[in-house]
Amino acid sequence: MQKKLYIGTNTKMYKTIRQTVAFLDELGSLTRDIDRNLLELFVIPSYTALDAAARTAQAQAITLGAQNMSWEDEGQFTGEVSPLMLEETGVRLVCIGHSERRHIFGEDDEVENKKVLAALRHHFTPLLCVGETASQKELGIQNEVLRSQLKVGLHDTSPEQARHIWIAYEPVWAIGVGGTPAGVMYASRMYTVIRQTLREIYGGEAGDRIPILYGGSVNNMNARELIQAPDIDGLFIGRSAWDADNFSRIIHDLVDICLIK
């Protein structure tokens, strides 16, 4: 049986409400021919666009996510967005621990764990992002960093809850305008570390079910090679996905490859 392919994007702080709706409408139309039993297509827009995004005609074909979330349901937390607020938008996915949240806004593994637990409590799918910095890679401690991020970030979650968890491996040095994508051999080694750690946390069967995505300077040139690497279940794509036509071409290409495998 063909394994489901996970492909999505986070638009960060780039698209307005109008631009997001237009993007979703075009993307949904261009990918209408793809069986959603084979493809889990997701888009993570800005908070302000979520309500309008959920009301588009394509909302059923594209899973919508939030870029962040508070671990508290309510309270005196100016500027935060609670799980209760996200429930009203129809969001099903929450991105947690993106490298920009960790390294620009100072979130640590304990904070990410609180958010993972809150997401599961409110029946969202947490997409937990993990990845090492360039200096950690140079020191040769990337394995330890990934294991720590996973073991702390997923602390107190159960094998039953693991069915609703996704992981994105995003090496910090590979993200952004100046990022350099990880080579397939290097990414495969890191995926082995991630998969082994998930098995330690949840056991073999539950740990093997969790989809692991790669993100970090994915583009039309390297997407094909990355998706064929062992253990990579999908791609979390940045600016190459922000044009619906180009994103559709990448998606169709990857789906065709996976059907041949």
Score class of each variant (00 low, 15 high):
2 Q>T: 15
5 L>P: 05
13 M>A: 15
21 V>R: 14
23 F>H: 09
24 L>G: 12
25 D>S: 07
26 E>A: 10
31 T>I: 06
32 R>D: 13
37 N>T: 12
41 L>P: 01
54 A>L: 13
63 T>E: 11
64 L>C: 07
65 G>P: 09
65 G>F: 15
71 W>S: 03
74 E>Q: 09
77 F>M: 01
81 V>Y: 01
82 S>W: 02
83 P>F: 04
84 L>R: 06
84 L>I: 08
89 T>G: 08
102 R>S: 01
105 F>I: 13
106 G>Y: 11
108 D>K: 10
115 K>R: 09
115 K>L: 14
129 C>M: 14
129 C>R: 08
132 E>Q: 10
137 K>V: 04
138 E>R: 04
138 E>P: 00
148 S>C: 12
164 H>Q: 13
165 I>G: 00
166 W>K: 11
169 Y>P: 15
178 G>Q: 12
188 S>V: 10
191 Y>D: 14
193 V>R: 08
202 Y>G: 02
207 G>Y: 03
207 G>I: 01
207 G>L: 02
213 L>S: 13
217 S>I: 15
218 V>T: 11
222 N>E: 06
225 E>D: 02
227 I>G: 04
227 I>W: 01
229 A>R: 02
234 G>M: 02
235 L>A: 11
235 L>D: 02
237 I>C: 07
237 I>M: 05
239 R>W: 13
246 N>Q: 15
249 R>L: 06
251 I>N: 11
252 H>N: 02
258 C>S: 08
261 K>D: 12
